[in-house]
């Protein structure tokens, strides 16, 4: 669980940095934006699955 918790924290940190960049008015690169959004979706999906499996165990 410690490893999973560490991974979730790491993913949340990564998501926060990405959202700061994407929400910045200066950032206008559409291709990179889409790539980042896709990676964000994957991370969110992974976090969702971990939360669900953890809930089932408890």
């Amino acid at each position: 669980m410690d490893k999973e918790l560490h991974d979730i924290k790491s993913d949340l940190s990564s998501l926060r940095t990405a959202s700061e960049v994407l929400s910045g008015i200066y950032f206008k690169d559409k291709k990179i934006s889409l790539q980042m959004i896709q990676l964000m979706q994957e991370k969110l999906q992974k976090i969702k699955q971990l939360i669900e499996s953890s809930a089932k165990e408890n």
């Binding site: 790491s10 940190s13 990564s14 998501l15 940095t17 990405a18 700061e20 960049v21 910045g24 200066y26 950032f27 690169d29 990179i32 790539q35 980042m36 990676l39 964000m40 991370k43």
Partner: peptide, 16 residues
């Protein structure tokens, strides 16, 4: 090693 953090960082640094 995290691609999302890397892309974010590169975007930030190239702007600044």
């Amino acid at each position: 090693d995290d691609q999302l953090t890397a892309l974010s960082f590169l975007a930030l640094i190239s702007k600044q």
